[in-house]
Design a protein around this nucleic acid. Structure first.
Lengths: 220, 220
DNA sequence: AGCTTTCGTTCGTCAAGTCGAACGGATGGA
DNA sequence: TCCATCCGTTCGACTTGACGAACGAAAGCT
């Protein structure tokens, strides 16, 4: 199907392309920071995701295609970045890969991420006195528990690793704290945010009295 | 960054659904209770979602099609439950509807709760200098976006209702604020928590300079 | 070496998604 | 009343996704 090689968006027939179909990203919570842009980028993202998940699962193209019940030629083209799969095809792949559908669309997310107070994608309101920062958008089917942490300086609180796939998000409200992987904790001040794998040893230590934080624990 | 898959993720090889393309539901948390079964059901789900979101947005088919850059005939057929749209088409609709992609695939699904600083189920650590409060536990399949809010006193920031089923969780880190449904906002101090429907008009107004909050937006 | 299996790609065909245009129906002005 | 505009649907034409078969390449086995 004539790949579009990253060239200009071939975009099917629409010569005029009035309304233009150049998706930004559906809503803020949609797909996270790495918003896929136009269609061609979307395809690139999907093809990358498919390949990533397939290799993670240790499957060959032929094997995956067989399990998904699609032609391996189709899969080949998909991973090559060509085409524009139907939801049914993508769904079948999701099932075969045992991966939630949307993971094939959302970009991979980093491991430890720190967003300092004042950093991050800010959504200012018209009035300058309000600013919302998207810290972590909805990973596919994550479930997130919200905790409030009040801690005083003293001992370090080392958490045992939670179940695999767990990710912790910490946003410091007041005080100061050291949080993150045991090996590389990050010092946080008010407004600072950090996320890190929760399935590896990690710590939380208040550095000031009255330290207040929100921890969102996300298990896939 | 090649994901490290943040851990594992349950599994790889699970063969389930070996043959034929009759998707059960990708992975565990995939699509919730209403696991779409075969392709046709998937389509039905999508068509219902599109119609629901379109009507919520108050758009006509023609208008939505125009915004999404697709032919209205295509949209008509889609809502009629015919077809098997390409991801690009679906993506375009997601963008036009300002709805995260996966919302069009997952089945549809929605009170104000306040937990004052010091209230709530507290999980004390052995050392008394650490206290974690579970504010809201994971509803199955909920997706939660985490926002940091920095606001100054001044005008009220009234949010337009988000999509149905959305719930907002606000935890105030510093300062004071008034947050909640437009009709009955709640005054919050540091450590206070409130949750309320996000699909109804609601407000957030800082009462002190340097007000800091975390808002976890949960769309089911 | 030869043979077999599996890998991933390419090609031609068929089916299906998408498109634009035209349709009847429902509003709303002039 | 007539006309204009919008709605959502239906139709034919074109485009394109998905399929099966055949291909060269690489690895395993006798």
């Amino acid at each position: 199907m004539t790949v579009n090689d990253d060239g200009a968006d071939p975009q099917s027939g629409t010569p005029d392309t009035p309304g233009t179909r150049t998706p930004g990203t559906p809503s803020l919570g949609a797909s996270g920071p790495g918003s896929p842009g136009s269609g061609s980028e979307l395809i690139g993202l999907i093809s990358a995701s498919i390949r990533r998940e397939r290799e993670r699962a240790g499957l060959s193209m032929a094997e995956l295609a067989r399990r998904a019940g699609i032609a391996k030629s189709t899969l080949s083209q998909l991973e090559a970045g060509a085409g524009n799969p139907s939801v049914e095809t993508l769904w079948a792949l999701g099932v075969a890969l045992d991966v939630p559908f949307s993971r094939l669309i959302d970009p991979p997310r980093p491991v430890v991420r720190v967003i300092r107070a004042g950093e991050g994608p800010v959504t200012h309101s018209e009035r300058a006195d309000y600013a919302a920062t998207l810290l972590a958008s909805c990973p596919p089917n994550a479930r997130r528990d919200i905790y409030r942490i009040e801690a005083q300086p003293g001992e370090t609180r080392a958490s045992d690793p939670h179940m695999p796939g767990t990710v912790e998000h910490v946003l410091l409200g007041a005080g100061r704290a050291l949080a993150g992987p045991t090996g590389a904790p990050v010092e946080l001040g008010p407004g600072d945010y950090v996320s890190y794998p929760g399935d590896a040893p990690h710590v939380f230590r208040a550095l000031e009295p009255g330290t207040l934080a929100v921890i969102v624990m996300e298990h896939v």
